[in-house]
Design a protein around this nucleic acid. Structure first.
Lengths: 330, 330
DNA sequence: CTGAAAGCGCTAACAC
DNA sequence: GTGTTAGCGCTTTCAG
């Protein structure tokens, strides 16, 4: 194992010079920097991150805390973060939130990261305080951490207007109900209430409690579609609070021979790649995933690099694009 | 920051005792262990993994090196590994192979892991030697590293037999062609040749060069289905070398109004969850993903924990299950 | 601009 | 069984 000491010796400089030169501190002569780096290269020197972390307190690693990396939404989100972190020379540690509470081990988990980016983090809040943290998709009233959200309210309104413009008047809203009680900190309710309000503005009265409920997104949407079909479809337009649900419904309708968009138009929310691989292809409110990733990482790095300026937590929303595809083309 | 020193002081023991007790070494009195751990808990002690790694040389972190975490196959594989690693108290660092070559940074990346599990790793082989490594889905003649494979040959034969038993006689095989030249180290060719051979055994002659080729899996399958439909479908059974392709084809056929399985039966290979969310649902050769994960991690840990016994690299295959769904139900 | 020295928090030998 | 000691490889004052 070749260490910095070896590099320093071979280059005829001290360890501290070698260290500084490798990192390119500008108090060193360009000449020295070049020399040291060349030797390091020749020797195949690799910096030992444990030692570096121990001394500097930095790990160059961010934990992506998520409820899963499977499913249309999360795998896309995780991919965007993987790319964004790489761009900045950071590593991504994946931690599944389902495992966070189950043992004492947890504490050590987070010692090796400089910060945490968390989705659906309300139930794991106890570990969050330990590091700089950015939340994704959290709408709680108390804004305890920097947060980056999808444009849930504005996007929902746009979805409703789109259906309306397509001539839909018997509009339904479909959401995924979690086992827990309703919570306004979740995107679901923000989207639902914004959509209901937009409906009212268009002169259609809608009580949010009439929201069509699914249990599970993909399979839940599918089963709901079956049920709606079997009961005699009463809607001519459906806004699904997530693409996962919408994709499931499209499948369910296909299985029951219901024509989309002829009999019922369907629009989702998220903008995942699978939207182009459904039959028919799915119209959606596409969240700017890349924007979420870059904003979240920027906010996090600012906290990490300047812990001294104690700004109060900020909450920002990224933009959306309405993508019209076959499922609402009429 | 509360350190082991603080715990030791408060517990009235030495640091080494505290260290050993925390780790539960059996040379300590149960009483001592309990006491130390209780104090640690009270003080909110969290072990500093950098210091631990620096000293012990172990990181309790495994790098999952993959070409992506999106797509039906990889997200499922990654999920299985995340679960398996967690079971063993290990962390998962995700590294995208597309980024491996692009800078010097790479070297340090792998300093913080104890080992590497790599999919599609033939093009990044230069970094592999540095750590204990397990390859996934590598069929190269030279077996340089421990390898865990899907049951590509046996599974392919089973797929063909299944189509045959369903009465298919005009059977096509569909594979995803990589931009690079054909390479027998990839699962693709192993599957193709095994399938061709099985066809011959059933009295149907098949030249592997007649394999139907797609570029990209999901979209590629879809476009191929369009083309086959437009040319007047000549097949009554199709074996797709991966579920991604098969799912794309199912979609393409639906878009062209071709009935599956009535006009053509389709079977895939992998066994991803999306198979149950296609229309029609997809029959497949399901690889034992959990088995792959647990086998791969076991092999890796043995190398990490006993670097001294220099066993020659082993290659193992996991089992498969033929899952019959709607796409071949006739 | 560079070097010497201290020590981050922990574990592994070796005493006792 | 438990304590003492010596570092792991690096960064960071602080001199010069």
């Amino acid at each position: 194992m070749v260490t910095l000491k070896d590099v320093a010796a071979k280059a005829g400089v001290s360890m501290s010079t070698a260290s500084g030169a490798m990192r390119g501190l500008d108090s060193f002569k360009p000449q020295t920097i070049r020399k040291v780096r060349k030797i390091a290269e020749e020797l195949g020197y690799k910096t030992n991150v444990s030692a570096k972390s121990l001394r500097s307190g930095r790990n160059d690693t961010i934990t992506f805390l998520t409820s899963g990396i499977q499913g249309v939404y999360f795998s896309q989100l995780a991919t965007c973060f993987a790319n964004e972190l790489h761009k900045r020379g950071l590593h991504m540690l994946i931690e599944l939130s389902q495992y966070i509470d189950d043992d004492a081990n947890t504490g050590t988990t987070f010692m090796m990261t400089d910060g945490i980016i968390a989705t659906n983090a309300r139930n794991v809040s106890k570990i969050l305080g330990s590091h700089p943290t950015v939340l994704l998709e959290d709408y709680s009233e108390d804004c305890l951490y920097d947060t980056v959200n999808a444009p849930s309210a504005a996007g929902s309104r746009a979805a409703i207007r789109h259906l309306y413009e397509k001539g839909c008047r018997r509009i339904g809203i479909v959401g995924n109900v979690l086992p827990e009680t309703v919570d306004f900190g979740f995107p679901r309710d923000v989207r639902l209430y914004a959509a209901a309000d937009e409906l009212k503005r268009l002169g259609i009265d809608y009580d949010p409690s009439n929201c069509l409920k699914t249990i599970g997104s993909r399979q839940g949407g599918r089963e709901l579609a079956h049920r709606l079909a079997d009961e005699g479809l009463q809607y001519d337009g459906l806004y699904c609070l997530s693409d996962g649900i919408a994709l499931g419904m499209l499948l369910g309708f296909a299985e029951r021979g219901i024509k989309v968009p002829e009999q019922v138009a369907v629009i989702g929310f998220d903008g995942v790649v699978e939207d182009e691989f459904s039959f028919p292809t799915l119209s959606t409110i596409a969240t700017d995933f890349e924007g979420m990733a870059s904003t979240a990482v920027s906010m996090l790095m600012r906290r990490i690099e300047h812990p001294e300026d104690e700004l109060s937590p900020q909450r920002v929303s990224v933009g959306y694009r309405l993508i019209e595809r076959a499922s609402t083309a009429r």
